[in-house]
Simulated scan of single mutants.
Amino acid sequence: MKISRIARVAAIGAVASLALAGCAANEGDAAVVPSEEPNETTLSGTISATGASSQTAAQEAWQAGFQLTHTGATVNYEPTGSGTGRTNFQEGASNFIGSDRAFNDDEIAAGGFGACLTDDIVEVPLYISPVAVAFNLDGIESLNLDAETIANIFAGNIATWNDPAIAEDNADVDLPDTAITPVHRSDPSGTQETFTTYLKSAAGDVWEHDPSDEWPLSGGEAAQGTSGVKQVIDAGVGTIGFLDASQAGGFGQVHIEVQGEFVAYSAEAASALVEGSPLREGRGAGDLVFDVDPAAAPAGAYPIALVSYLIACEQYEDANTAAIVKEYFAFMASAEGQAAAAANAGNAPISEGLREKALAAIDLIQVG
């Protein structure tokens, strides 16, 4: 991934603002205050990663901020999609990955992570973001939809925008008789698994398919990656799809029913869902995986929240690789890193409690 000058400057500005604010609020914090001549560390070399396209904007900010004080180290991140990223990690083709879902229990039990010396891995949720349900209808900026209606739309049971099920919750909107074209991912995607988990959890009577990173139906339009979904929604009329909220600007926004109220997506509302979710039991000390149940979303929470993970080895063969990965992960988890990502991507910064757990997990990264 090449970082544009504009993105780099924006990310650096976000890092600088937070670092300065942190120093003023708490002089005990070891905040990094960028200058025109950043201090260069002894880290040098290149690490390469692939994975979740939802993290694209956040990775741009993280790379820019990291290189302020690590000018000799380079981090390459290619947004291939989560499924490809996990495959690459298993085959040893990526030093670390981003993934919109953690490795599942069967994958953990099977082991065989080619990038690592052992089967022990670090999985830390450093990117939390609402998954927007976005549409393209001239003159309409938002619609209220409940889980059952959303499930019926993506299942192909509701075919036009003026269907009574949509009109019932949007009495003040002049709905057209335009055909609905639902858009999904063509590639295995953690964002897709997040969305189908919501459909199954909140509208199981309609959506009978198990959660999956692969789309279970043949209808609708399929597109590669987050950027592909965005392009198809934008190019069509009457299109509707799901994508990371950081990429949903300019489209109509679906407000989703939660406990009798319709909630717009926001970083704060997504964070409220994740904060109340338990960690999965039976995982290693560095394996922090949340069990998020959209049907249990509290009032005011947005029920479709992507919990995207950064995944690394606990033990690497190469000392330089281990050092750069560990330092980069620590930066992504830091208050500065989280603020830079939020400014560039609109995601929800992790809480202090989660940061403490994440840094403890990251500290396990070492040379074997």
Rank of each mutant, 00 (worst) to 15 (best):
G111L: 01
A222D: 01
S4Q: 07
V307N: 04
W161T: 07
G28L: 07
A348E: 02
I365E: 14
A16H: 00
M332G: 13
A295D: 12
G282A: 11
A297L: 07
P294Q: 14
T74H: 04
T69N: 13
V254K: 07
G368I: 07
A132K: 09
G65Q: 03
L143N: 04
A269S: 14
A134H: 01
A21R: 09
G28I: 09
P38M: 00
V32A: 13
P125I: 02
G72E: 04
D105S: 11
G204E: 12
S53K: 00
P164A: 05
V124C: 04
D100S: 13
L273C: 14
K230Q: 11
P188I: 13
L279S: 15
P216N: 02
A301F: 01
D174Q: 15
A102M: 07
T42N: 12
T74N: 09
Q259S: 13
A295K: 13
K2Y: 06
A134L: 02
L243Q: 07
F154E: 00
I12Y: 10
A270W: 05
V258I: 12
C116Q: 01
R355K: 04
W207A: 12
S246E: 10
A31T: 09
G204Q: 11
F135E: 03
L137T: 09
T56H: 00
G236I: 00
A73K: 02
A147V: 12
V131Y: 00
A248C: 10
D138W: 08
A342D: 02
A348M: 06
I311A: 04
V75T: 12
A245G: 12
W207L: 06
Q315T: 15
V274S: 15
T118G: 02
A360H: 03
R86S: 06
G139L: 08
P182Y: 04
V237H: 14
D174V: 15
S53V: 02
A115F: 03
N162P: 03
P176G: 11
L288I: 15
A345W: 00
K2I: 09
N344R: 15
G250A: 05
G337A: 11
G346I: 14
D120E: 08
A319P: 03
I150E: 06
L364K: 01
A179H: 06
T74P: 02
F290K: 15
G236V: 01
R5D: 08
A222N: 10
L217S: 04
D213S: 11
A134R: 01
Q224Y: 12
A165G: 14
K326H: 15
